[in-house]
């Protein structure tokens, strides 16, 4: 499959009276058709600017954005507006029209596209059914919960049959349970409709849950990019390590070799990995840090174990982990 969005050497500088702020510099990335691509970074890293360059709500200062084979910078305002109907967007704050009910909200982009009213309503109903809130059709946004509002926003974003759905911190205002259900919905939409999804977030959990590939943005640059599991297992950049170990990690307290970090990258949640290891090796380990999640019956996350001093026991553990195909690496740790 080809690239849906191709960004080359993108730069964006905001000019104010006194100074200039570089929001993005030399960003290049390709988002494949049909994938779920994540962009993660701390606040101020330039994520939101990057996603707004993808639909030219922000015009980049340098570089180019090619959407589905068309270079956006060569387009007139009118052509851009037409193109934007194929690049939908959802937001952290939902941004629904407060004076319109759910159905009318979903009709809105269709009205803009000039779809006749009857046809628009039919499509809008289908979309609300797809996102699972057809029963709230007549409700106004003020009567809906955050999760329901985001579902309406997703239905609205999908109404024009877009090729790409940009999600700007779409789950950041939601509680963990609602976040999971919205992420599951996005995954379902990606599978069912083949819509390419770009997810902007500051939460590693969101990336782990549904993204195939990820770009890590740090201070206006792409620090690291690749498959989620590769980066998760073996983060290279400082920022990637910071995002993967949210508690922070300073070296020194434990010597390398005293600790091992094991990574859960989607094996069954029902397999008691650590217990089995302890039983098999006949030696106790101390769990220093653990951050795991169960997503659809699969375990994701990591655990930091303090190893016994005994070299033989250590080797036994390494051998066991290798034999069970569990990824691990020796670590320094400071807990």
């Amino acid at each position: 499959m080809g690239a849906m969005i191709e960004i080359k050497n993108l730069g964006k500088t905001f000019f104010t009276k006194e100074n200039q702020v570089v929001a993005l510099e030399g960003v290049s990335l390709e988002i494949e058709e049909g994938e779920i691509f994540g962009i993660i970074g701390l606040s101020g890293a330039g994520k939101s600017t990057l996603v707004r360059c993808m639909n030219y709500l922000e015009k980049p200062t340098t570089g180019s954005v090619v959407f589905d084979g068309q270079a956006l910078h060569t387009m007139s305002e009118k052509q851009l507006r037409k193109a934007r109907q194929s690049i939908s967007m959802i937001f952290q704050g939902f941004h629904l029209l407060m004076q319109r009910n759910a159905l009318q909200n979903v009709c809105f982009p269709l009205e803009i596209a000039g779809v006749p009213k009857k046809e628009a309503e039919k499509k809008a109903k289908e979309m609300l059914e797809l996102v699972g809130i057809a029963d709230k059709m007549q409700a106004y946004p003020s009567q809906l919960s955050g999760g329901q509002k985001q579902r309406v926003a997703i239905a609205r974003a999908l109404a024009t049959n877009p090729k790409v759905l940009l999600c700007d911190e779409a789950t950041s205002a939601l509680d963990p349970t609602t976040t999971r259900s919205i992420l599951a919905l996005l995954q379902e939409i990606n599978r069912k409709l083949g819509v390419t999804i770009v997810i902007i977030t500051h939460e590693m959990g969101v990336i782990e849950a549904i993204c195939k590939r990820v770009a890590i943005l740090d201070r206006s640059h792409v620090a690291e990019m690749g498959k989620v599991e590769d980066i998760f297992v073996n983060p290279q950049s400082e920022i990637a390590k910071q995002l993967i170990y949210p508690q922070g990690r300073k070296e020194g307290t434990f010597q390398k070799g005293e600790c091992v970090r094991i990574v859960f990258d989607g094996r069954s949640s029902f397999e008691p990995v650590v217990s089995n290891m302890v039983l098999a090796c006949g030696t106790a380990v101390n769990i220093l840090f653990a951050d795991t999640k169960n997503i659809d019956g699969q375990a994701f996350g990591q655990m930091l174990l303090q190893l016994p001093d005994d070299e033989t026991a250590k080797r036994k553990i390494f051998a066991y982990l290798t034999s069970r195909n569990i990824h691990f690496e020796e670590e320094f740790a400071n807990v």
């Binding site: 967007m89 937001f91 803009i112």
Partner: peptide, 13 residues
């Protein structure tokens, strides 16, 4: 809300 205007712009209004 400025965001609602932005949402409309993102839909090509």
């Amino acid at each position: 809300d400025r965001g609602v205007v932005e949402a409309a712009q993102s839909m090509g209004a």
